[in-house]
Simulated scan of single mutants.
Amino acid sequence: MFSKRDLIGVCGVIALTAAACTPTVRLEVAPIQIYAKLDADVRVRLDRELQDLLVENPNLF
Score class of each variant (00 low, 15 high):
residue 6 D to I: 00
residue 14 I to F: 11
residue 26 R to M: 07
residue 17 T to K: 05
residue 48 R to V: 15
residue 42 V to K: 11
residue 31 P to H: 02
residue 43 R to C: 05
residue 32 I to E: 08
residue 60 L to R: 04
residue 59 N to Q: 11
residue 7 L to A: 08
residue 41 D to A: 13
residue 53 L to K: 00
residue 38 L to M: 07
residue 19 A to M: 14
residue 48 R to F: 12
residue 50 L to I: 03
residue 2 F to Q: 06
residue 28 E to V: 15
residue 42 V to I: 15
residue 1 M to Y: 06
residue 28 E to N: 13
residue 40 A to R: 11
residue 4 K to A: 12
residue 45 R to E: 14
residue 8 I to K: 09
residue 1 M to K: 07
residue 28 E to Y: 10
residue 46 L to S: 06
residue 3 S to M: 00
residue 41 D to E: 14
residue 37 K to P: 01
residue 33 Q to D: 08
residue 1 M to H: 05
residue 33 Q to I: 09
residue 43 R to A: 13
residue 10 V to W: 05
residue 34 I to K: 15
residue 29 V to K: 07
residue 53 L to D: 00
residue 8 I to Y: 06
residue 33 Q to P: 01
residue 60 L to I: 13
residue 54 L to D: 08
residue 15 A to V: 10
residue 42 V to H: 03
residue 3 S to H: 02
residue 51 Q to S: 07
residue 8 I to F: 10
residue 14 I to W: 04
residue 44 V to W: 05
residue 32 I to H: 03
residue 32 I to A: 10
residue 56 E to V: 05
residue 2 F to T: 00
residue 3 S to D: 14
residue 10 V to C: 05
residue 52 D to G: 02
residue 5 R to M: 07
residue 32 I to M: 09
residue 31 P to A: 02
residue 20 A to M: 11
residue 55 V to G: 00
residue 56 E to T: 08
residue 5 R to G: 06
residue 54 L to A: 03
residue 1 M to N: 02
residue 59 N to E: 10
residue 34 I to L: 14
residue 46 L to N: 12
residue 45 R to P: 01
residue 45 R to N: 13
residue 12 G to P: 10
residue 1 M to C: 04
residue 45 R to L: 15
residue 61 F to W: 08
residue 7 L to F: 04
residue 36 A to P: 07
residue 22 T to I: 13
residue 37 K to L: 00
residue 46 L to G: 04
residue 16 L to E: 05
residue 22 T to Y: 11
residue 45 R to C: 09
residue 16 L to P: 04
residue 28 E to L: 07
residue 39 D to I: 06
residue 44 V to G: 00
residue 5 R to C: 05
residue 15 A to G: 13
residue 60 L to A: 07
residue 17 T to D: 01
residue 54 L to R: 09
residue 20 A to I: 07
residue 31 P to Q: 08
residue 46 L to D: 07
residue 49 E to L: 14
residue 11 C to M: 12
residue 53 L to H: 00
residue 54 L to Q: 11
residue 55 V to H: 05
residue 36 A to H: 11
residue 21 C to A: 15
residue 8 I to D: 11
residue 24 T to N: 11
residue 21 C to F: 15
residue 34 I to A: 12
residue 5 R to P: 02
residue 16 L to Y: 07
residue 6 D to S: 03
residue 24 T to G: 06
residue 25 V to W: 09
residue 34 I to S: 05
residue 13 V to C: 04
residue 13 V to Y: 03
residue 47 D to P: 00
residue 16 L to W: 05
residue 10 V to H: 03
residue 48 R to C: 04
residue 13 V to Q: 03
residue 2 F to Y: 02
residue 46 L to I: 14
residue 46 L to M: 15
residue 35 Y to F: 03
residue 39 D to A: 10
residue 17 T to V: 14
residue 14 I to L: 15
residue 37 K to A: 01
residue 49 E to I: 06
residue 51 Q to D: 12
residue 10 V to I: 13
residue 45 R to I: 14
residue 25 V to A: 12
residue 7 L to S: 04
residue 22 T to H: 08
residue 6 D to P: 01
residue 33 Q to W: 05
residue 54 L to C: 02
residue 23 P to E: 02
residue 43 R to T: 08
residue 55 V to P: 01
residue 40 A to Q: 10
residue 28 E to F: 10
residue 35 Y to P: 00
residue 6 D to K: 03
residue 6 D to N: 04
residue 12 G to Q: 04
residue 61 F to V: 09
residue 56 E to Y: 01
